[in-house]
Design a binder for these strands. Structure first.
Lengths: 133, 133
DNA sequence: AGTTGACCTGGAGTGCACTCCAGGTCGTAG
DNA sequence: CTACGACCTGGAGTGCACTCCAGGTCAACT
């Protein structure tokens, strides 16, 4: 199957402009073109875009995604380096999850404080709650 | 206790420039000044900076942090709105954690693929592994 | 008295990841 | 046959969150 840029955008969740942008910066190999010169994305293109958006979600900078994309073009010889990139990204994602978990705990604590303030709102002297909030 | 801007930067993990920047954009109330006009951050200032950096870690945009900071200046009457902001942020953090967890699973899957490629490297026809990688 | 180093100000510059625009080409529907 | 909508290109513009800079003040050390 092949997809127009609008369809590829819909399926990937990226904007049309972003698809062309990714192509320009070599994140994405130029897709096939139809008879009229319009882009015709393949399923492989879409799969790659899907993976790219996952990498983006993990916070990988475009620079690194470009490196990964470029390695991919160099075939099996680059598999070791590609794996290393993914392992490093895995590490950074796990770290980020832990960090966010810590933030979640702090938010819960703060929210609980506010809930208490709400419950005691009649007995609080103004300004007092500022110390912890 | 009070702290020079350099010390406040060290303790908050923010740069000196960022501290002045946060003050300019009203994320941070102007700290006290010493006799020579230099900033003297209080423990309260540092605590607030600590919380701000947590909010930043959660991905809260500066715009929202400014709103929270501004509400804080309006005392107890704004507690409800502040709590709502935190609850919303809590929701978005939990969502983000789930999303990252999904990415982690995909990374694990890919990494495992590469590990298999490594193990079978002698029996692989070139290009074959590209289909899944 | 002079030099150093930390700090001050207002404003300009940076890097990232898009996002938008003007002006043009196609293929199909009315 | 012309009007429309979807697509094309190269290039400029945007928003965010800093980050850097020039030129200046001040207290302390030598």
């Amino acid at each position: 199957m092949s997809y127009s840029i609008a369809e590829a955008a819909r399926r990937s969740g990226l904007s049309i402009d972003t698809l062309r942008y990714y192509e320009r910066i070599k994140l994405l190999d130029p897709p096939a073109r139809d008879a009229a010169g319009r882009r015709a994305y393949s399923d492989d293109d879409l799969n790659w875009l899907g993976f790219l958006t996952k990498l983006r979600t993990t916070g990988m900078p475009i620079k690194s995604m470009r490196e990964y994309a470029s390695l991919r073009r160099h075939g099996v010889a680059s598999a070791g380096r590609r794996k290393a990139l993914l392992v490093e990204q895995r590490r950074s994602v796990a770290e980020r999850i832990a960090e966010l978990q810590g933030c979640l705990d702090i938010l819960d604590y703060k929210i609980d404080n506010y809930a208490q303030v709400e419950r005691n709102v009649l007995g609080v002297e103004p300004g007092r709650e500022e110390i912890s909030a």
